[in-house]
Simulated assay, not measured.
Amino acid sequence: MIHKRLSLFISANFQARLTRIGLNSARRYSTSDPSKNDTIGFIGIGLMGFRMANNLYSKSNYPLIIYDINKSNLEKFTSLHSATISKKPIYYGISPADVAKRASVVITMLPSSPEVKDVYLGKDGLIEGLNEQNFFIDSSTIDQSVSKNVALQIINKGARQVDAPVSGGVVGAEAATLTFMVGASTEADFLRSKPYLEYMGKNIVRCGGLGTGQIAKICNNMLLAISMIGVSEAMNLGIKLGMDPQLLANIFNTSTGRCWSSDTYNPCPGIMPNVPSSNDYEGGFGNALVAKDLRLAVNAANEIQATVILGAIAQQIYNSLSKTPGYEKKDFGSIYKWLNERSGNEKN
């Protein structure tokens, strides 16, 4: 089973910390708990989810109930908000079902299709705790058919759901400038999701019916991976031919080669101070996740016999990169370093 219940017994030190900052263990219902309609749930407090939930909590007036299989993520999140937690509580869910019972709106940010199926449909999943009040927003990037199937099962149980994958990466999640690509079966569902998404993003776009958000996302990420490879190759080539890296990047960004991978997330170390390439490619959009998204895109293309030559090549490259020792968890801009090493020069 992919998701597991949080331990019923929190360590003495951790429990003491919760007591000091005014948190009840989320296992226990108390008379001070807000009503279901006044609470937002967030499941998946990982690299992206942490930042998204942070903006949601900081900008809204809603109490928050959070769930993640990694207990340290929960502690880190509550510690960040210790100054406001007495006035705007943060609760812990013991399972996705518990979150659904205690929050009317639940947002999920999960790594892949198996986790989404388990959290929504598995034992102690959201489907076991929902009622007609519940509204679910899944911001995971997963297979379009899985997304649609999960949503239909939730809707058939009386709740509502949209898919709303994101673009903008960790930088966008931190700054609340994400683009949300929303697949909703009705305009009313889209409009219901929008106020919550606006706490975390800048551009909220309805792509069509259920699953269309996932279609837009895999197409975008296929293009993103291709452009990152292209920028990395071009930067490597220009530098090896004698160009100054900063000057070359500036020329790209005022010329026809300009793109997000060059002007916002340049993969060459030292060009931009606040992106993973200048932090040894730590954090950011992991190579394994890029490889996963490319597999989704190429599989979808194969199913409908669409030609994606560069997409298929990008998939092969990122599959190799994500399996290279030392690169598995690095940001996808590390393709620059990987290519550089294969040309026999690790200087840049």
Rank of each mutant, 00 (worst) to 15 (best):
D293T: 01
Q315W: 01
K88V: 11
D293M: 04
T78W: 07
S227D: 13
N348L: 09
G22H: 08
L321Y: 01
T264E: 09
I66R: 11
G286F: 01
K148F: 00
T179H: 10
T141Q: 13
P269F: 14
A297K: 15
G209M: 01
L197I: 09
S140D: 10
P111L: 04
L178A: 11
M52R: 00
I317D: 07
P276K: 01
N253Y: 05
Q246V: 12
N345P: 02
V171Q: 11
T256I: 15
R51H: 13
F42V: 05
V116D: 01
N220D: 05
V231T: 12
E187Q: 13
C259M: 14
M243Q: 04
K36Q: 14
I313M: 04
G122H: 09
A164M: 03
C207S: 12
K240S: 15
F190H: 08
M243K: 02
P96K: 08
Y120N: 06
D33R: 15
V162R: 00
K117L: 00
Y57S: 06
A53Y: 04
L8T: 03
L310M: 15
K202D: 08
L197D: 12
S322R: 03
K76L: 15
S79Y: 10
K117T: 04
S147V: 02
I127D: 01
L47V: 13
Y265I: 03
P245S: 11
Y92I: 07
L80D: 02
I317R: 02
E328T: 15
I66N: 09
L248S: 11
P165E: 03
V275Y: 03
T307F: 11
D118E: 13
Y67T: 04
P325D: 09
Q161V: 12
G158Y: 09
N345S: 08
M1I: 03
M222G: 09
T84E: 12
A288I: 07
W338D: 08
F42D: 01
T324A: 08
I21Y: 10
N149V: 00
K347R: 13
N61I: 03
